[in-house]
Structure formats: C-alpha cells, structure tokens
C-alpha cells in the first residue's frame, strides 16, 4: 500500500522539503506540498527507468562532510595559485581508471571532482571505465589518482553498490 502510494519515497521527501523551503510552512502550503510530493513521483513513474539504490547512509553523510572540507581546502589552494605567478601552474589532463560501475555513482564522482576547485572532470571514455580529469596543478599523477579513488570513489562504491 505504502509502496503503491509512494513509488519513490526519497523523491517525495525531497519534493516536499523543497516546496516548504520555497514557500514557508503555512498549513495550506503543507497540504499543497503533500499533494505535489505524492502526485509528481506517481506521474513521472514511467519515465524513470533506471533509479539509484542508496545504502550505507552514514557513509553518505561522512562523504558529504569530506567533500565540504575538501572544497574549502582546495579553494584556498587554487586562490593562491591564481594570485601567484602563472608560470607555477602546471595544467594537465589525467585519465583516472574507474572501479565504480553504477552510472549514478559515476555521475556523483564526476560532480564531486568538478566541485572541488583545481580538478575538472571533462570526459568519460565510451566503455565508462576511464574518467578524463583536468588538473590545474597536476604534480604527481599517481598521487592524484590514488587520492580520488580513496577519498571519493571508495565511499561512493559503498553507497551505490553496497546493496548488490
């Protein structure tokens, strides 16, 4: 019964919270938000064929904090690079081999890599096994790949592929 009413509980919750953040928590808005949060996932159900399956919620929260911390740290580092002499910047493309197979996980990984300044994910190989990353200051390639794999990819594998 609950499953029939809410085919995508996470999406419903996200829609409800977004509606309240946008419009305030007046009783009428609560009711309208509830209606929308029920109706939209129900109507879009046939369109969403491939959906992510989350597991390991503590890992997800921890990854969020790690990413926020890294955003701050790398922002400071990139600011110093930009304000310093340009000759010190050594930009390069690096192919990062991927272990993660889940497409949603790859999207999340690419997004995290781009959000931390200094690295930009720019392409995915056709077989989805390598991610092209552009680094503002590459330095040691092996170290960079190891950092990405250990800090972001390992938790993402646990989050998106742990259930399988």
């Amino acid at each position: 019964m609950m499953r029939r009413l809410f085919p995508a509980p996470l999406l419903s919750a996200a829609l409800f919270i977004a509606w309240l953040l946008l419009n305030g928590a007046a009783p009428a808005q609560l009711a309208l938000g509830a209606v929308l949060a029920t109706a939209i996932p129900w109507l879009t159900e046939p369109v969403r064929v491939d959906r992510p399956r989350f597991s390991a919620w503590p890992t997800l929260v921890r990854l969020g904090f790690v990413v926020l911390f890294d955003i701050v740290v790398s922002n400071v580092r990139v600011a110093r690079l930009i304000l310093g002499p340009e000759a010190r910047i050594d930009p390069r493309f690096v192919w990062v081999p991927l272990t993660i197979r889940d497409p949603h996980g790859i999207v999340a990984l690419a997004g995290i890599i781009t959000l931390t300044p200094g690295t930009l994910s720019s392409d995915l190989s056709d077989d989805r096994r390598h991610l092209l990353v552009h680094c503002l200051n590459a330095g040691d390639e092996a170290l960079l790949i190891a950092t990405i794999k250990q800090r972001y990819e390992a938790p993402l594998i646990r989050i998106f592929e742990g259930a399988r």
């Binding site: 922002n75 990139v78 600011a79 930009i82 959000l115 300044p117 930009l120 503002l136």
Partner: peptide
C-alpha cells in the same frame, strides 16, 4: 589559456 580559466568560476560558485 581556456582550460586554466575554466577552473576559476568553480571557485566563485562554490565558496
């Protein structure tokens, strides 16, 4: 260079 410049707005948009 364009690829170097591309790293700049990510700073403005995040922090």
């Amino acid at each position: 260079d364009f690829m170097k410049r591309l790293h700049c707005p990510t700073k403005a948009s995040t922090l």
